[in-house]
Design a protein around this nucleic acid. Structure first.
Lengths: 239, 239
DNA sequence: CGGACTAACTGGTTATACCAGTTATGCTGG
DNA sequence: CCAGCATAACTGGTATAACCAGTTAGTCCG
């Protein structure tokens, strides 16, 4: 229901400026109650995919200029069958961009306890062997780093990226597949413990940048089936 | 309605794990229809502030670990009376972090036409004199830069940040107040035209970093009354 | 004491009616 | 023929009331 409308907009089926069919018409056409339509439109409105005006028609917005970062999760979901290289690169780059700066700031201004906690998680991530363990360990590491960076925007953005990665197995394997980077994790941990922003940032860069080059993506042969999306099943109308 | 519940959660009135009162109870207590309550909860659910389960109670989530970047807009709105230094710094830092990297990538991989467009906007921004004009010019500049960087995540994140800034006059004046940075804009434009990623990034850094130090915030004497929030008035139920 | 049934919750959906804005129609007076 | 205005036919917004579908906790019976 909500998914259907959303996809129609994201896929370009509706052009910005177009008027979405009226609630009554949609409810009739989709054989569903008008309240269900309203709730769906409310979600689109919150995602800034449509602008609804009392009395007038609900119009489609240009989500590329109005949409928020959270849209990335929906975009990933829609493309989850095939690999969208651009989308993968975008998410990877953003994770690197934020992760590197957060690492520097965490080293520079987090209290010793938080830096030690993040350092420990870095060492734990280095020790993780299989993809699933790496994913969990990396998520915990960067969450701790971002928490130490004391930047709420970074933290919320990371949440969004993690959510997007969780719905996209290829992306997960691209970002979290085991590599020979134990030294970089160790350098990150050491930099964090010393409170050395520069060294920490450089280690973070070595950890996060390589994933950017598509050539280094691992073969997608055996990829985990699919991570559940915690809050909302893809097809479920509400959750 | 929706605002009331959201603020209660964001302000910590509800602790994560708490069960929100039932829809029927809320509708009765707030003297409003149950459908209105449902639509409100749907929005909270989409923002990952609550987890609703059929049959069981709707529970409050820890938004700091589940919330997406778009939450920052709501957080800013809630604090729009007083200045929240941490929130301002977070948004400013993130703008700088993304803007610098986007500038580099725009210079490196955007086609000449897009680089020229961004460069022209940089020169236009340098020419803008008053706060309002600078805000518009800067928004257009960085939008063009991010478009050239060809990273959808950056673009959507920037949208969110712009939205947040628009609801927060102090933040707007902190980020966009006229400064003596004509040379930096010129360097940015030149770097973009040459396709010189390093130079462009350094210029972007000079443009975006200074705003990070609170000392350089301008006196908040005459601040624009308030920018309208385009899609959704703070108190309006629908938007 | 244990297990199954049941009653009393929870959210999810439907139908219907009406209120409140917007807009297009079309009539009327110039 | 055209300008201007009343109105009718849309649009979304809200309200009642009933019921479906899960979950949970109680209670009763074996």
């Amino acid at each position: 229901m909500h998914t259907h409308l959303r996809d129609a907009i994201l896929s370009g089926e509706f052009v910005p400026g177009d008027a979405v069919p009226s609630e009554r018409e949609l409810s009739e056409r989709l054989a569903v109650n008008r309240h269900a339509v309203r709730e769906a439109i409310k979600r689109l409105q919150q995602a800034r995919l449509v602008a609804v005006s009392h009395g007038g028609p609900t119009r489609v917005l240009d989500w590329r200029t109005t949409g928020g970062l959270d849209l990335i999760v929906d975009l990933v979901r829609d493309h989850s069958e095939r690999i969208d290289a651009g989308l993968m690169a975008a998410i990877t780059e953003m994770r690197a961009c934020i992760g590197i700066d957060a690492a520097r700031r965490c080293a520079e201004r987090a209290p010793g306890q938080m830096r030690g906690d993040a350092a420990r998680r870095a060492e734990a991530a280095a020790a993780a062997t299989d993809l699933g363990a790496r994913t969990v360990a990396n998520t915990e590491l960067w969450t701790a780093v971002v928490a130490g960076a004391d930047n709420l925007a970074y933290r919320l953005a990371l949440n969004t990226l993690v959510e997007a990665v969780a719905t996209y197995p290829e992306l997960d394997s691209g970002l979290n597949a085991p590599r020979d980077d134990g030294a970089d994790y160790a350098a990150l941990a050491a930099g964090l413990r010393r409170g050395d922003g520069g060294a920490t940032a450089r280690a973070a860069e070595r950890l996060l940048e390589p994933a950017r080059t598509p050539a280094q993506l691992p073969p997608l042969a055996e990829v985990v089936p699919a991570l559940d999306t915690s809050l909302d099943a893809p097809g479920a109308g509400s959750g």
